[in-house]
Design a protein around this nucleic acid. Sequence first.
DNA 1: TATATGGTACGAGTTTATTCGTATAACAAT
DNA 2: ATTGTTATACGAATAAACTCGTACCATATA
Lengths: 128, 128
Amino acid sequence: MLRDKSDIKPTEAELTLLNILWKMGPATVRQIHENVSQTQQTGYTTVLKILQIMHEKALVIRDESNRAHVYAPANSEVVTQSSLLKDLVLKAFGGSKSKLVMRALDDSTSKEEIEDIRKLLNELEQQS
Amino acid sequence: MLRDKSDIKPTEAELTLLNILWKMGPATVRQIHENVSQTQQTGYTTVLKILQIMHEKALVIRDESNRAHVYAPANSEVVTQSSLLKDLVLKAFGGSKSKLVMRALDDSTSKEEIEDIRKLLNELEQQS
DNA sequence: TATATGGTACGAGTTTATTCGTATAACAAT
DNA sequence: ATTGTTATACGAATAAACTCGTACCATATA
């Protein structure tokens, strides 16, 4: 088993739709399809199908009280981002989170970003 | 097209084998299989096949001068990590690298890690 | 009521990833 | 030379992800 089956991380297509839902808030298939169509060429029923699969996987919840179901993310953007990061740390950084952080920081990092991260480090240190 | 086809990011199985190669250095299929077998149950020819596919994709190079081919990563661990990070930043952090970094840093970060990252921030600031 | 419109469900085709069995070649040792 | 061991190559089966056509149901409106 070279593939890891333990967790339920969204696939690429699913992540694309989650990003739209986080941005838009709860939305119908039509609204989501219109939004995704702005940047990508894809069919209405394709988006519908993926949302149905996401519903089975519990990646989204949906309100079926109206004819056009209204979809919403099951988890917040923050929770999902953390989960994806944890996965990447495990699979590509030998489990070391700080190794990942230090790899992410390179010479393209702006002064503002550096200052923001410094502030966060200070806050973290206060807590412990 | 909800899936991104632009770049050549290693699949999970491929990343598993790359991790072994980075750790071991150049190795034969048998050596790699023995290593992966320590933690995962998988067949010899499965490992062979994946390495052959990785060779087609240019994720590894191989020395065919001996009967047992010797495989080595085509790219360094650092380059691959950076590429995976870039991909994740794009797909889950709206392109914002510092957002990713700040999400990675949470209360589980140790004092040592915080200090290491501070040092790196200082170095980065000197350069620019 | 009949018809157009717009919604979900669902089956099936396509592609990519993973897995492994089998054929076959190379080499070593009898 | 024959036999056993250990390689690679390759085809095919399976699974997951993605895509879309078609059927069929709701509702609005002529």
